[in-house]
Design a binder for these strands. Sequence first.
DNA 1: AACCTGACTTCGG
DNA 2: TCCGAAGCCAGGT
Length: 106
Amino acid sequence: MSFTCNAIKIIRNIPHGKVATYGQIASLAGNPGSSRQVSWLLHSSSEKERLPWHRVINSRGTISLKPGYGYELQRKLLEEEGIVFDPAGRINLENCLWDGRKINNP
DNA sequence: AACCTGACTTCGG
DNA sequence: TCCGAAGCCAGGT
């Protein structure tokens, strides 16, 4: 069992219509300091593991991707799930942040 | 084994 | 509130 393996499972358990921060996932995976590793693993296996990578955002509640590099796609996917963006492009974490409860707990 | 890199986070100005 | 610098972790080369 590794941090990465835990993180993958956690990301897969993010409920529809909710979002989680990198730091939150890192904490749930057992290592609060490795938020950057979460981003790496999304690159590594977002497609093979079929992760809901679009539900992962930074602590500010904004999309970390740059426009033209996935930003628009992620925003679109989130909006389709009911996530609301402010005019500044920020998400209301009070409403949309995942509480951390897993649906599947092995 | 050493060095580099990243979809981060936090602190100070 | 926004911007820049420093810190941290794990995987890749």
